Amino acid sequence: MYQNLFNYITRYTNSQLTPLEQDLIKNAFTPKRLRKKQFFLQEGDVNRYTGFIVKGAMRQCCFDAKGGEQTVNLFVEDYWADERESFTLLTPSKYSIEAWEDTDLLTITRKDFLELATRIPSIAEMFRIMDDRHAIANQKRLSLSIGCTAEKRYEDFAASYPQFINRFPQHQIASYLGITKETLSRVRNQSIR
């Protein structure tokens, strides 16, 4: 289980972890298993842990006053699942994070994560790179949602995240893209032709 995380850190930083660093990581992270439909975080709770997904799939969503839901993030293996604002500021979350499949995670508190980053240079470097890539991805997603057609949004999504296509139902992907499931169905059918 921990080897997946070690490999991830190495891919991001191009530096091998020492045995001592691996032990520090093992001591800081806690394995957790979620069953499908089990919540990692519920709206209104404080997001006290981030979770590195070793196996499985999760989604971050919110619910409107009428009971409708909006998928705002999708996570699979080698993704970090948390609600950034709540995790960083320790405020009640506006979102829920739910296991979409049976999911195995390695979890850590923000305090422990920051302490690891001071003791292990590779963790600090990984965190910086992840943060940069996260900001770039969010900016790209915002640009696509403001200025592009449903067809272009789906095309970019399928090219950027092919691992999501068969892991999440069509209505969740449509919600993530900000389109209706009927529009997504039409777009997908056109792209198959």
Rank of each mutant, 00 (worst) to 15 (best):
E43Q: 03
A57P: 00
P31K: 03
R84H: 13
T50E: 15
R48L: 14
K36G: 12
M58N: 01
F52W: 05
P31S: 06
Q16I: 11
D78H: 09
R84D: 10
Y12P: 01
L5P: 11
T18H: 07
Q16C: 07
Q70A: 13
E77N: 04
P31M: 08
T18K: 05
R59G: 01
N4F: 14
G68F: 13
A65E: 12
Q60Y: 02
Y49W: 09
L24E: 08
D78V: 07
W80G: 14
K55Y: 12
C62E: 06
G68I: 07
N4G: 13
E77P: 05
I25A: 06
I9N: 00
I53A: 00
Q16E: 07
C62T: 13
Q22H: 03
C62L: 12
L24P: 01
R84M: 13
N47Y: 02
Y49D: 02
N7D: 15
T13Q: 07
A57M: 00
R35Y: 14
E77K: 02
M58R: 04
R11E: 15
L24I: 01
A57Y: 10
F63A: 13
N4D: 15
K26Y: 07
G44T: 10
T10G: 09
N14F: 15
A65I: 10
N47P: 13
L17V: 08
R48I: 10
Q38D: 05
S15Q: 14
G68T: 09
P31D: 04
F39K: 05
K55Q: 14
A28E: 05
C61P: 04
K36N: 05
E85N: 12
A57I: 08
E77D: 04
N73P: 01
V76S: 05
Q38G: 01
M58V: 07
Y2F: 15
A81W: 05
L20I: 13
W80E: 05
F52M: 09
A81Y: 08
N27G: 15
Y8W: 13
M58A: 05
K66Q: 15
D82P: 00
F63K: 12
R35W: 14
Q3P: 01
E43R: 02
V54F: 10
Q16M: 04
K66T: 08
D78G: 08
Y2A: 03
K36R: 12
E83C: 11
L5V: 08
Q3T: 00
R48P: 04
T10F: 11
E21N: 10
K26R: 15
Q38K: 01
A81D: 01
F40W: 09
T30Q: 08
